[in-house]
Amino acid sequence: MLDLQQVYARQKKLIFFLLAFCALGWGFTPYPTVFAGLALGGLFGLYNFWLLVRRLEKFDRSLSEGKKVASLGTALRFASGIAAVAVAMSIPEQFHLNSTVIGLMIPYVYLLVDRIVYHVKYH
Rank of each mutant, 00 (worst) to 15 (best):
I116C: 08
R54P: 00
V7R: 10
G73F: 00
Q5E: 14
S90Y: 10
V109L: 13
R10M: 11
A86Q: 07
I116K: 04
P92W: 06
G42H: 04
R115A: 12
G66E: 05
T74F: 11
I102T: 07
V117F: 13
M105E: 02
C22L: 06
L56I: 12
E93I: 09
E93S: 15
F49S: 10
L19E: 03
A88I: 06
L52N: 02
V101M: 10
Y110R: 00
R55Y: 11
F44T: 04
L51R: 12
G45W: 01
S90K: 11
P30M: 05
S90L: 11
L111R: 04
R61N: 14
F78S: 10
F59R: 13
V109K: 01
F78A: 14
F35Q: 01
L43A: 08
L14R: 13
L14T: 09
F28K: 08
L40H: 03
A36I: 01
F21H: 01
I116T: 08
G45M: 03
L38S: 03
L24E: 01
I91S: 10
G42R: 02
L63R: 12
Y31C: 04
Y8D: 10
K68F: 12
K13N: 14
M89R: 09
S62C: 13
G37L: 04
R55M: 09
A23Y: 07
V85L: 14
T33D: 10
G66S: 06
T100V: 05
L19T: 02
E65H: 11
V53E: 09
S80P: 00
P107T: 02
N98M: 12
L19P: 03
S64T: 13
F59N: 11
G103F: 05
A70Q: 08
G27K: 09
D3P: 07
R115K: 15
F95H: 05
G73A: 06
V109T: 08
